[in-house]
Amino acid sequence: MKRLILFLTIISLLMVCGTAIAETGQKAIEEIRLSIEKSAFSKETKISLLKKVNDAVNAGIQPGDVVIIVNRGMRQNLDGKAIEGFIGIAVKVKNQNLPVRPVLDRMQQGLSKGVPADRIMGVTGMLAEKLSVANTIVNDLIKSGVKAGSGKAKEETIQTVALALERSIPENIITQTGMRVKKHNHPISMFEISIDTMTNLVGSGMRVEQASKLVNKAMDRGYSEKDILRMEREIFSEIKEGKRMEDAARRMESVMERGGFERSHRGMEGGQMRGTSSGMESGSSMGGSDSKSGPGWGGGSGMQRR
């Protein structure tokens, strides 16, 4: 009898909120409903969790993402309240019209890695705040006249700025780079790439001031978005070769002083690459990625051939 009442409550709840659920999400919702029903949670927890799930889907969060959070949370034996808390943060972010993907990704990642629930809650709650600050920074920049591009470009920029803030890059350094972007009449995507490069360099041990100086200088020198990406790669490949971050940064600066970093690629192009790699059969893999990938590029990680 109890089960029947529970079942009916759940069904009626689903029916009330069901109108908003897209057909594609139906299967996912059904999956969540079944797993929640099968769980060891109390009746009350089951109902309130299911309500939270419906809130999330109604707010426009992909049901597939919600399923992952609920299922992984249950597999980690988390409290129903903790899972509700995660979904609550995501719903809040979504309702503020902020990009929700980074928050969902961080939750899914934390749950998969077995991070304790309160830590995930703390980190994602903080991320939500950073997204809100990032949103203001990006909107101000667009209002000041920087071309916004597509909605996707804006969303990506907000995410990148939020990550930069999360890595403790000060807000004023970020807005300074924003002003540089505006000064050189670049679109918002240039801002995104500059901040991303800065974050990656800082994350690998470069001082914030040095990273921002490098990126700003690159813009002053008329570097394109791709040039900045190449600059970042170049620095990382030097680090891999054993250079210290400090030295790699200084070298990059002096290369820029001389007017570009094309020359630094010399001797590493075409011939030598094929030369070294063909002896170890890697030439084929490069050719493979070349033909397979077409416009993009195929790379890989780790050792390619043995």
Partner: peptide, 25 residues
């Protein structure tokens, strides 16, 4: 020949790992 490359390969990979450890990773 390939076996030789293997060894060098792994050794240099390990140096790279050690270097990264020393750099704080």
């Amino acid at each position: 020949m390939y076996k030789k490359v293997d060894k060098d390969d792994m050794q240099s990979e390990e140096y790279s790992i050690i270097k990264q450890c020393m750099d704080g990773n």
